[in-house]
């Protein structure tokens, strides 16, 4: 039995890697995607264009503006000299935001009157807008703190000391790259199984998924320098269960599809909600109740908790039990159904 299994494994491996085209599809694109997406898929702002509309000639405004233009998140896109200039920068997307310092700024500040600045943000991408606003607030808070200290003003009665655990510099790559492990493994495994209309075979899909996931984990750790503080066994248990459950769904789809195109459609109807509802890019907690319930059916949801938890936080295996068993159930149910469907179709 074991011997037959090994023979089967070997054959599947060879079949996969002897074909030049499939070898390419399995290795080239995931590598490129990991690299590109690993850098692209980030909510961190980096050199976002900011335009400056400074009507004040004092030193305080210059210092404040220097803090903005000197921040890593922003880069100066230009100076504006009149009100209508704001639209000229924002509308054609030459600047994401405009910092407007009014004429009285330095004077008000030195008179210890509250001075105000205006920040005009392009809301076409409201998420980016919010993040930019956040950055701006942080810069302003720093400015206020140092101004208060400089001028020996009364200290505020309390101060915030914020520390981020697990990811002290709030580098989103640490969040996204482990997510990509799940994403690419899902896409590749699903396509291999769901498009294979003729033969419902679980093994190649599982193998491909395992190889793909291992490869991306290595890339994440050695290329993207994502920390790996947890237990490899805990991660691999997660990978195996995730791949098996994905293959289960893939075979289920392929057992229902009459043509490759239908298989593809089915794969899509599964992959896209999976990516969106898994917490890959947006927190599940922010979704409406009904959608949150729906996410319970998505293996990627559990896998993301495992991969992020194990790599970044070092969550031990026993604490992840609640993530393991739903994937196992999804996998077994789908494999069983798929086997039943295939048999029914064959007969």
């Amino acid at each position: 039995m074991l011997y037959a299994m090994l023979g089967l494994l070997k054959k599947e491996f060879l079949a996969l890697f002897r074909d030049k085209k499939s070898r390419f599809v399995l290795i080239g694109p995931p590598l490129i995607q990991l690299l590109v997406f690993g850098y692209a898929a980030s909510y961190d702002l980096n050199r976002v264009p900011i335009a400056i509309y400074n009507e004040d000639s004092g030193s305080a405004s210059r210092e404040l503006i220097a803090r903005f233009t000197g921040a890593r998140a922003f880069r100066e896109a230009g100076r504006i000299t009149r009100q209508s200039g704001i639209a000229e920068f924002i509308n054609p997307k030459k600047a994401l935001l405009v910092l407007h310092v009014e004429r009285e700024f330095t004077r008000d500040l030195s008179k210890r009157k509250p001075a105000s600045i205006q920040l005009i943000i392009d809301g076409r991408n409201s998420n980016t807008a919010l993040i930019a606003l956040n950055y701006a607030q942080t810069i302003l808070a720093d400015f206020n703190r140092s101004w208060t200290a400089q001028q020996r003003l009364e200290k505020p009665s309390a101060r915030l000391e914020i520390r981020a655990w697990f990811n002290p510099n709030l580098n989103s790559q640490w969040f996204i790259v482990p997510g990509i492990i799940g994403l690419l493994t899902l896409v590749v495994t699903m396509l291999v199984t769901a498009l294979e209309v003729l033969i419902g075979k679980a093994l190649p899909g599982v193998l491909i998924g395992l190889v793909e996931a291992s490869f991306i984990v290595l890339m994440a750790v050695y290329w993207f320098q994502v920390p790996f503080v947890g237990d490899v066994a805990a991660l691999y248990l997660g990978i195996i269960l995730f791949v098996v459950s994905t293959v289960g769904v893939g075979l289920m789809i392929s057992s229902l599809a009459a043509t490759q195109q239908q298989g593809l459609l089915g794969a899509f109807l599964f992959i896209v909600p999976s990516i969106i509802l898994s917490g890959f890019a947006t927190p599940i907690a922010n979704m409406p109740e009904a959608m949150q319930t729906l996410t319970l059916l998505i293996p990627l949801r559990y896998f993301l908790v495992i991969v992020r938890g194990v790599m970044l936080e070092g969550i031990p295996l026993p604490l992840l039990a609640d993530q393991y068993w739903p994937m196992a159930v999804i996998g077994l149910v789908n494999l069983g159904l798929a086997a039943w469907m295939f048999r029914r179709r064959l007969y």
Partner: peptide
């Protein structure tokens, strides 16, 4: 037959599928 596999690999596969020692 498995077209991507060589002649020998095909034979090896069937040998293992038929559980020859």
């Amino acid at each position: 037959l498995y077209g991507a596999l060589s002649v020998r690999q095909n034979l090896e596969f069937f040998a293992s599928a038929y559980r020859l020692d």
